[in-house]
Amino acid sequence: MADFEPRIVTFCCNWCSYAGADGAGVARLQMPTNFRIIRTMCSARVDPEHVLRAFSKGADGVMILGCHPADCHYIGGNYRARRRIALLRMVLEQYGFDPRRLKLEWVSASEGEKFQKTICEFVDTIKALGPTPLVKGDE
């Protein structure tokens, strides 16, 4: 799996994790290029449908990053998000996906380093898991 470059979709909330990602940039923390960030205002805006869509389009992994519990800019959006993602993870497992392909993590605006660490670890995890098990065109 040496040349496997995973395709990872990362949803970041505007206030904490997107700012944390910016913070990683400001601090010039280096990390793999495999992820693309989609900004939403809150992790609670991420509809599990968006995650399923990403997987259906061939994403090898999906991350949802939000504010730490108790730190949500919108008070409790991250609590809603964690419930939805927990249920989504059950659904993905039923499909046969390795649940590690979906990661929910909390990154604050000041945690550029945690952002870096989270990305690096997730890329490693997905590299170890290999490409998405979703095979197109198999009838």
Partner: peptide, 29 residues
Amino acid sequence: GCGCCVAACPSGAMEQKGFKNIQIQAEID
């Protein structure tokens, strides 16, 4: 404008202006 209710809405009646479903879907696609 957090959009929590939009993800929650089961009928698709709720939308978040500037972060509509089709807009996020377009980004994913």
